[in-house]
Computed example of a mutant assay.
Amino acid sequence: MTFRAALLAIVALTAAPALAKPTNIQVAITVDDLPAHSALPPGETRVGVAARFIAALKDARTGPVYGFINGVQIEREPASADVLPMWRAAGHPLGNHTWSHLNLAQLDPAAFEAELVRNEALLDKLAGGSDWRWLRYPFLSEGETPEKRAAVRNLLKARGYHIASVTLSFDDWAWNEPYARCVAKGDDAAIAQLETSYMKAAEQSLAYSRDLSASLYGKDIPYVLLMHLGAFDARMAPRLLAYYQSQGVTFTPLETVERHPFYKADLDPTPTAAPTTLENAARARGLPVGEHPWNVSALDAICR
């Protein structure tokens, strides 16, 4: 696929439908991969990315936003260490994304627990009295078997964790690396196309999650939005948050959102067969679940 064809494919595949009349939609923003996510464009720093992202949260008056950390990044990029106290100084809590972001499907429960525990000293040091015992599974993977899922949930419960669900996501992570490539090439036209496709994917994902919620409950549940602390996310955060507000979104703390009955199985991680995603909840009731209307596969060809 040519570069131009890749750009056109992204725009076509992310053509956004019209949303319903704005209403009061509660959304908890959560941000993964602190202190360092994806490639850095030339001239950028991790601290600069975090500062812009935090400024966007402040301007949008989001209130506290959980950032989920991988402590290994401080070893890989020592200059990123200042991001975590910055995040806390801005009033945002931290949670556990495991030490090195390994996929539970490739680990046994004991190895996963070691990954979890290795992050805890850092979290405890930075917490300042905030509740850091929230887990975001790397890759959103709870394991490849019911037995592993149950074993890990038991250890999470024993250690006092809640699970940070995800009910709203547009694969924002996928734009950060192409953006770094395009900045390196000085391709402003490609960056503009990335901006367009990013926003269209965000629009489509909100419609997608709202449609699933409407099919299940006849109304909106409160949603948990997954984002990442990448350079393009920081660039787009002011526009993205303004878009959500234009659609009637009220930014709400994660703890409040997960008090909704839909999240019971993640707020209390007792082993259960209950579905924890909107898609699986719909499938359990025999409701149709369509493919994601956004598609990130063509992003890989941009600015190569």
Rank of each mutant, 00 (worst) to 15 (best):
residue 88 R to L: 09
residue 28 A to V: 10
residue 105 A to L: 09
residue 50 A to F: 00
residue 88 R to A: 12
residue 158 A to Y: 11
residue 70 N to L: 10
residue 101 H to E: 04
residue 72 V to Q: 15
residue 73 Q to N: 14
residue 74 I to F: 03
residue 107 L to T: 10
residue 93 P to T: 06
residue 123 L to C: 03
residue 63 G to S: 13
residue 79 A to M: 12
residue 111 A to L: 11
residue 113 E to W: 06
residue 124 D to F: 04
residue 149 R to F: 07
residue 57 L to N: 00
residue 131 D to M: 08
residue 148 K to L: 09
residue 43 G to K: 10
residue 67 G to R: 00
residue 141 S to N: 15
residue 46 R to H: 14
residue 158 A to T: 12
residue 156 L to A: 01
residue 65 V to E: 01
residue 155 L to N: 08
residue 63 G to E: 12
residue 28 A to H: 08
residue 27 V to Q: 02
residue 133 R to P: 06
residue 40 L to G: 06
residue 152 V to S: 02
residue 90 A to S: 12
residue 134 W to C: 02
residue 129 G to H: 11
residue 127 A to G: 05
residue 118 R to S: 02
residue 36 A to W: 08
residue 35 P to K: 02
residue 143 G to E: 08
residue 100 S to V: 04
residue 148 K to T: 14
residue 79 A to Q: 15
residue 144 E to V: 11
residue 83 V to H: 01
residue 129 G to V: 10
residue 147 E to Q: 15
residue 160 G to F: 04
residue 117 V to G: 02
residue 70 N to F: 07
residue 94 L to H: 03
residue 70 N to P: 11
residue 118 R to A: 05
residue 118 R to L: 02
residue 67 G to D: 00
residue 73 Q to A: 13
residue 91 G to C: 09
residue 88 R to I: 11
residue 133 R to Y: 04
residue 124 D to P: 04
residue 105 A to Q: 14
residue 146 P to T: 06
residue 110 A to I: 08
residue 162 H to C: 12
residue 103 N to L: 10
residue 71 G to I: 01
residue 93 P to F: 06
residue 104 L to Q: 09
residue 66 Y to D: 08
residue 131 D to L: 08
residue 93 P to L: 07
residue 35 P to N: 06
residue 73 Q to D: 15
residue 83 V to D: 01
residue 111 A to I: 07
residue 74 I to Y: 03
residue 77 E to S: 11
residue 61 R to C: 07
residue 108 D to Q: 14
residue 145 T to L: 04
residue 99 W to M: 08
residue 101 H to S: 05
residue 78 P to C: 08
residue 107 L to V: 07
residue 137 Y to C: 05
residue 53 F to I: 00
residue 137 Y to I: 03
residue 67 G to A: 08
residue 149 R to I: 07
residue 112 F to A: 10
residue 38 S to T: 10
residue 145 T to Y: 03
residue 129 G to I: 09
residue 162 H to D: 04
residue 125 K to D: 13
residue 36 A to Y: 12
residue 92 H to M: 07
residue 56 A to N: 02
residue 81 A to E: 14
residue 158 A to Q: 15
residue 148 K to V: 12
residue 123 L to W: 00
residue 130 S to Q: 13
residue 67 G to L: 01
residue 80 S to M: 04
residue 75 E to S: 15
residue 67 G to F: 00
residue 56 A to S: 13
residue 30 T to P: 03
residue 50 A to V: 03
residue 92 H to P: 04
residue 139 F to H: 14
residue 121 A to F: 01
residue 109 P to Y: 05
residue 33 D to W: 00
residue 104 L to C: 09
residue 123 L to D: 00
residue 118 R to K: 15
residue 142 E to R: 13
residue 101 H to T: 04
residue 114 A to V: 06
residue 94 L to P: 03
residue 37 H to A: 09
residue 97 H to S: 04
